[in-house]
């Protein structure tokens, strides 16, 4: 977020400054050279710790390297092997499905909560603080707490009230375990989205609602014609960040199901990480490269679609 806002604020800096000289005018709209200097540290860190390791990883995905010792080129063999690996295909299917479902669930709930909190209700500030708590707890801790709830509390409760289908933990059921992961991931990420939506809602001028209610618009009409279009950018950023985050889902699954039962909840990130401990470094680097390309494509697609509808970030 900060990285993307830095250049844009820098470009805007000269604009409001009152100036009369022609030299200054020529530079209008272009960044001050000093802006590039400010970018250097971030760029350096990003290059050294993200870009270079990523490129090294991509390079090794074409080899049989195990992390040490010698290696030889395999060409595209790792990639061909990936296509024929049912475990990998299942992981992609699960991860993509999970990301889509969770992003929808989380956005709907976050937006609903944000709208509720933006009304003049009692204890709004206190409630907001409570809703944000999940954000500050680490994912693995949340997952272990929920794991206990799902395996002990919920079944005990269900058998006490006679809800037989739930008397067995859903974590042990390959058809339902993914639901638990959606619930926990959504619970954990809703606060972040909620904050963004709250910011978005406060940016809408109140007189728009006043004017529309004078014209006879009801709450639903107001939501569709004023709120939603004006926070479309916020919805977009939340969706992109959400999808990106959910695609990388790891700690919640490790804490809840460990990828099981069977491989029902194994995510792509988990298969990639398995390569480091399993001596499958190059193969999983190929997997990571494919995953990276897919993530970029999804993000670009989202941007293109939103540009087409005139939504700006």
């Amino acid at each position: 977020m900060t990285a993307t806002t830095t250049p844009s604020t820098a470009t805007r800096v000269p604009a409001p400054a009152p100036d009369g000289t022609t030299a200054r005018r020529r530079r209008r709209g272009r960044p001050e050279p000093i802006a590039y200097v400010f970018l250097v540290p971030a760029l350096l860190v990003f290059t050294v710790f993200v870009v270079i390791p990523a490129l090294v990883g991509i390079f090794y995905s074409f080899t049989d390297y195990v992390g040490f010792g010698g290696w030889s080129f395999l060409g595209l063999r790792n990639y061909v092997a990936l296509l024929g690996d049912p475990g990998i295909r299942e992981a992609y299917g699960f991860t993509l499905g999970f990301a889509v479902v969770t992003v929808v669930v989380a956005q709907v709930i976050a937006l609903t909560l944000a709208i509720g909190l933006s009304k003049r209700i009692r204890f709004a500030a206190g409630l907001r603080a409570i809703f944000v708590i999940p954000m500050v707890v680490s994912g693995i801790v949340v997952a272990y707490v929920f794991s206990f709830l799902f395996s002990n509390t919920l079944p005990a409760f269900a058998s006490a009230v006679g809800l037989d289908p739930l008397s067995q933990s859903i974590l042990g059921n390959p058809d339902l375990a993914w639901l638990a992961i959606v619930v926990v991931s959504a619970w954990q990420t809703i606060p972040g989205a909620l904050l963004v939506y709250t910011a978005g809602l406060t940016s809408i001028p109140g007189d728009l609602y006043e004017a529309s209610s004078l014209d006879g618009a009801g709450p639903w009409r107001q939501f569709r014609s004023i709120t939603l279009p004006l926070i479309a950018g916020f919805v977009l950023i939340n969706t992109i960040l959400g999808i990106k985050g959910y695609l990388g889902v790891y700690d919640v699954i490790v804490g809840l199901t460990g990828g099981g039962p069977g491989n029902a909840t194994s995510s792509v990130a988990m298969t990639i990480f398995g390569g480091f401990t399993g001596g499958d470094y190059a193969y999983q680097m190929a997997n990571a490269t494919v995953f990276f390309v897919i993530t970029v494509l999804i993000s670009v697609l989202q941007l293109v679609v939103s540009r087409g509808r005139n939504i700006r970030l």
Binding site: P174, G260, P261, G262, N263, S266
Partner: peptide, 16 residues
């Protein structure tokens, strides 16, 4: 069994 083969997960499923 190399860790690339998720034997433990397969066993979970087989037991179930």
């Amino acid at each position: 069994v190399p860790t690339s083969i998720p034997l433990g997960n397969y066993l979970q499923e087989a037991i179930r």
